[in-house]
Amino acid sequence: MELTGTPFFILTIVLFVASIALALAYWGRGRGGYAEVPGGRRRGRGRRTGAATPLGYLGSFATVLLCQFTAIAVVFTWVNDDNQLYANWDDLLGTTSHVRSVPVPPKDNGLAGDQKSGTPKVVASFHAPSSDAVPRDVKETDLKGKLSGVDGEVLVWTPPQYDDPAYKDKNFPVVELLAGYPGSTSTWYGDTGMNVTKQLEPLMKSGQITPFILVTPRVNLLQNADTGCADVPGKVNAETWLSRDVPQMVLDNFRTTASPDQWAVAGYSAGAHCAALLALGHPDRYRAAIAMSGYNDPSGESDSLTAKDPKLSQTSNPLYLLTHAATPPNVSLWMSGRKTDGLPDATALQQAAKPPTSVTQVETTGAHLMSTWRPLVVPSFKWLSGIIPAPK
C-alpha cells in the first residue's frame, strides 16, 4: 500500500479509532490491573474489588501504547501527505540504494560540451509515475547515471504545446525541479504538493508563461543524509547526477537545446540551496534559478554532508561561488523567504551580485511549509518567462 496514498491514511484513522475502542472495552471490563476475587463486590462509584496482577497492568500499558502509536501514525501520515516527504516505504526506511558507484567524473565542459562528447545517447524508457500523488500526464523513467554512478527516477512533464503540430519543429526550454530534504520527486506535483502542472498548464496555454519542459530528478540519494547536491568523494556524485546525467537524458529524448539560455533550475528549502548552487556553479548549464526559502551556508541543513567537510562547506556555498567567480556569471536568481528564513541569504547574494548576475528577492511571511511555497509557483515562473521566453 502506497505510503502517501489515501487508502493508507484512511487505514491509520481506522486503526486509531479501533485502538481507542479496544482500550475503553478493556478498562470498562475492570481489567486495569486488577483480577476478580471470588465473592468480591463493587464499592463506591463502580470500583471493583480484587487483586492487582502483572498481567492486568501489562494489558493496560499495551492499550495505552497502542493508542499512542496509532495516533502518531495518523499525524505522521497527514504531515507526510501534506509535504510529500517520503513517497514510498523504501524512502522512509532507506532500504534502496541509489548510489551504484562513485567514479571520478570526467572534465565538465558545460552543457554543449557533454552533448558533443560523442558518448552513446541515453535511450530512456518511460512509464506511468509510481506515486499516486503525481498526475497521469507525467512520465517517469529509471535513469542509470553514466557519469555519476547514481541510479534514480526522473519525472518529465511536457507542456501543452509540445504535442501541438504547430510546434513540431520547435525546441522547448527546460526547468529542473528539486525537492527539499527529506523530499521525493512527487513533492512538486499533486494538490498537497506544489501542484506545479495544474497551476502552470492553463497559463502556458494562454501564453502568460513560457511552455517549459519540467524535469524532476531524485534528489535524496543517501539514507539519513543530505548530499547538498554536491559531488562528495567516495560517497556520492549528486552534482554530476543533477547537472550532467539528468540533462543529457533530457537532451537525448526531448526537443530541447544544449544552450544554457534554455535551462533553469528551481527548488524549495534544501532544494532552493541546490538551485542557487547549481546555477551559480554552472553558468554554462543554467541561465536562471528559483530558490524558495533557501540558505547559503550548507550547515543550514543539519544532515548535510557538505557541511561536515571544511572544503566542501566553503565551495558549496552560493555566496562563496558568486564572490569568487573569475567573472560575474550570467545568471538570474529569483529568491524568496521571510526575515528569519531565507531572506537574509538572498539579500547577501543580491548585495554581492554584479552585472550580468541579477538577484530578485521576494519577502514572504509564511512558515517553512509547502503551503507557503505553493502560491509562489505562478509568480516565480512568470518572472522566469521574462528571462527565458517562449520558443519562436
Rank of each mutant, 00 (worst) to 15 (best):
N237L: 11
N237K: 06
A238K: 03
A238G: 08
E239T: 03
E239C: 01
E239V: 06
W241D: 01
W241Y: 09
L242R: 06
L242K: 01
L242V: 06
L242C: 06
S243R: 15
S243K: 15
R244C: 00
R244E: 02
D245P: 13
D245F: 08
P247T: 11
Q248L: 14
Q248E: 12
M249G: 05
V250H: 03
V250E: 01
L251D: 00
L251I: 07
L251F: 07
N253P: 14
N253F: 12
N253M: 12
F254N: 02
F254A: 07
R255C: 10
R255E: 05
R255D: 01
R255W: 04
R255M: 09
T256P: 10
T257A: 05
T257K: 12
T257F: 10
A258E: 10
A258W: 05
A258G: 09
A258C: 08
P260A: 04
P260V: 14
P260K: 11
D261C: 05
Q262N: 15
W263E: 01
A264H: 07
V265S: 14
V265F: 12
V265I: 15
V265Y: 14
A266K: 01
A266M: 10
A266Q: 11
G267S: 01
G267N: 03
Y268I: 13
Y268E: 10
Y268T: 11
S269L: 14
S269N: 11
S269C: 14
A270V: 08
A270K: 11
G271T: 09
A272S: 14
A272G: 14
A272Y: 09
A272N: 08
H273T: 02
H273M: 04
H273N: 09
H273P: 02
C274D: 05
A275M: 07
A275C: 08
A275V: 01
A276L: 13
A276M: 14
L277W: 06
L277H: 12
L278K: 04
A279G: 06
A279H: 00
A279R: 06
L280P: 01
G281N: 06
G281L: 08
H282I: 06
H282D: 03
H282N: 09
H282F: 04
P283E: 07
P283A: 05
P283N: 01
D284M: 13
D284L: 12
D284E: 15
R285M: 07
R285A: 03
R285V: 07
Y286S: 06
Y286N: 03
Y286I: 07
R287T: 08
A288D: 03
A288E: 07
A288T: 09
A289P: 08
A289Q: 12
I290D: 04
I290E: 06
I290Y: 11
I290T: 04
A291K: 07
A291W: 04
M292I: 14
S293V: 09
S293Q: 14
G294I: 00
Y295M: 02
Y295R: 03
Y295P: 01
N296W: 01
D297L: 12
D297C: 02
D297T: 10
D297I: 06
P298R: 05
S299F: 04
S299H: 13
G300Y: 04
G300E: 02
G300Q: 09
G300K: 06
G300M: 01
E301Q: 14
E301V: 08
S302R: 15
S302A: 15
D303M: 13
D303W: 10
D303V: 13
S304D: 03
S304G: 04
L305M: 10
L305H: 00
